[in-house]
Amino acid sequence: MQNVMAVAGRRVDPQGASASRFPVSRVEQVRSLILSRLSQGDIRKIVCSAACGADLLTLDVAADLSIAARIILPSTTESFKISSVLDRAPQQAWSEMYDRAVSAAAKRGDLILNVGDNSSTDYGAVNDAILDSACSLAGGNPSSVVALIIWDGQ
């Protein structure tokens, strides 16, 4: 039985992207796949960042299923929102998901900020912190952690 899920994945493509990796047109399909996985009932906690795309979709589905989430960001909430949420369409939808997820995590004490070099782009340090936090939440038992990687195979 898996208890903690570490999540990482792609952000939605910017408008006019030269290479399509995660077009906005696939958001509902990806949400459905995430829902299918999280509905299996074996996850009690999610650990991830909160960028628009895979992260926010996972956080939104987890909230719908009453699965708590720990959010780890490389900067302040506002700085991260500007650099990794509001820069992609549809801005309003991503912004609302982000605000809900961050607010809920903060209320539970599950919001970790300024990981790494305190820049909005220290994603390597955030990925390390996500894995470390997931292992810690699983009581140091790696067999109680599962990783969900949401990407296009490229």
Score class of each variant (00 low, 15 high):
Asn3Glu: 15
Asn127Glu: 14
Gly124Trp: 00
Ala125Lys: 08
Trp94Lys: 01
Gly124Thr: 11
Ala134Asn: 01
Ala104Arg: 07
Ile43Glu: 05
Asp117Ser: 14
Val12Pro: 00
Arg37Leu: 06
Leu38Asn: 01
Asp87Met: 15
Asp152Phe: 00
Ser84Glu: 02
Ala68Leu: 04
Ser75Tyr: 11
Arg44Asn: 10
Asn141His: 07
Ala104Thr: 11
Pro23Trp: 04
Ala101Arg: 02
Ala50Leu: 03
Ile149Thr: 12
Trp151Thr: 07
Asn114Phe: 09
Ile112Asp: 11
Gln2Ile: 13
Ser83Asn: 11
Ile130Ser: 03
Leu38Arg: 01
Val145Ser: 05
Gln29Cys: 08
Leu137Tyr: 11
Leu111Ile: 11
Thr58Met: 01
Arg37Asp: 07
Pro23Lys: 09
Asp13Met: 08
Arg100Ala: 13
Lys45Ile: 03
Asn114Met: 12
Ser25Tyr: 02
Gly41His: 08
Cys135Lys: 12
Gln92Val: 10
Asp110Ser: 10
Ile82Tyr: 10
Ile112Ser: 07
Ala54Lys: 09
Ile112Val: 15
Ile71Glu: 04
Asp122Tyr: 09
Pro90Gln: 07
Arg11Phe: 05
Ala105Trp: 06
Gly153Met: 05
Asn127Ile: 02
Arg44Cys: 14
Arg88Ala: 15
Arg44Thr: 08
Cys52Val: 08
Val30Thr: 10
Thr121Ile: 15
Asn3Val: 00
Ile130Ala: 01
